[in-house]
Amino acid sequence: MTIHIGAAPDQIAQTVLMPGDPYRAKWAAETFLDNAVLVNEVRGMLGFTGTWRGHRVTIQGSGMGMPSLSIYANELITNYDAQTLIRIGSCGGMQPHVGIRDVIVAMTASTITSPSSGILREMNYAPCADWGLLRAAVAAAEAKGTKTHVGGIYSSDVFYAERPDLDEQMVRHGILAVEMEAAELYTLAARHGRRALAVLTVSDHLQTGEALPAEERERSFGEMVEIALEAAFSEA
């Protein structure tokens, strides 16, 4: 048990999927895991452990933003020995060829600042995904016929951004989408020698203004969860 996770040491699996929304964690656990058990509800940040095709999996909400994710990822790694952490969540598309419902597998995650900035100081560190997880996720997505993009994303520390000049430069430099957590997850995984990946569903688009209707989100997000699970336990 930690300050933010009430699970006993043996209740957290070594493979953890991390959606931002705790209710998305509940939905994913009930939909994809067998014998899912609630193992954390401290501060309403729900976590569940069950099995997928015989493999133990924990699905733990991380909250919104890098500071919140940093708390949960740190405790999962240092107190529960989590080895593989995969963010599953939504993102906003930034490139014209990226469409609503598409899946993005984040190779890199750029950011202006994160909770790790105080450690890295003047270094412009480049957080990246685990290659084995990324390769397996792409293979899983291709096998499903899911329209998938692989490349760099941007992890913002604000939701209501007011920097059109920055958006313009990100589009110019090929950033596929924006979200709020992956850069810190990748940095923490590198620091502790763990595997990390972000598999994201495009729920809205910053250029076109399109947005995925609420009633369609769960169906669309299902592919993302399946890709993450298959990547986590791939032998590739």
Rank of each mutant, 00 (worst) to 15 (best):
Thr2Pro: 00
Ala7Thr: 10
Ala7Asn: 10
Pro9Cys: 14
Asp10Ala: 15
Gln11Asn: 12
Ile12Met: 13
Ala13Met: 06
Gln14Val: 10
Gln14Thr: 14
Met18Glu: 02
Pro19Asn: 05
Pro22Lys: 03
Tyr23Leu: 15
Tyr23Ile: 15
Arg24Trp: 01
Trp27Leu: 10
Phe32Pro: 08
Asn35Val: 09
Val39Trp: 08
Asn40Lys: 07
Gly44Gln: 10
Gly47Asp: 01
Arg53Gln: 14
Arg53Val: 11
Val57Met: 09
Gly61Asn: 05
Gly61Met: 09
Met66Val: 10
Pro67Leu: 06
Ser68Arg: 08
Ser70Pro: 03
Ile71Leu: 12
Ile71Tyr: 04
Tyr72Asn: 04
Ala73Pro: 14
Glu75Gly: 01
Leu76Pro: 02
Tyr80Asn: 06
Ile86Ser: 01
Ile86His: 01
Gly89Tyr: 02
Pro96Gly: 07
His97Gly: 05
Val105His: 11
Ala106Pro: 04
Met107Val: 04
Met107His: 12
Ala109Ile: 06
Thr111Trp: 13
Pro115His: 05
Ser117Asn: 09
Tyr125Val: 07
Ala126Phe: 11
Pro127Met: 02
Asp130Pro: 13
Trp131His: 15
Val138Lys: 09
Thr146His: 07
Gly152His: 01
Ser156Ile: 05
Ser156Trp: 01
Asp157Tyr: 05
Val158Cys: 15
Arg163Cys: 13
Pro164Ile: 03
Leu166Arg: 11
Gly174Tyr: 11
Gly174Thr: 02
Val178Arg: 05
Glu179Pro: 02
Glu181Gly: 07
Ala182Glu: 00
Leu185Thr: 01
Thr187Ile: 05
Ala190Gln: 09
Arg195Trp: 10
Ala196Gln: 08
Leu197Tyr: 10
Val202Arg: 12
Asp204Ile: 00
His205Met: 01
Gly209Ala: 12
Gly209Val: 04
Pro213Asn: 10
Glu223Thr: 07
Leu229Ser: 03
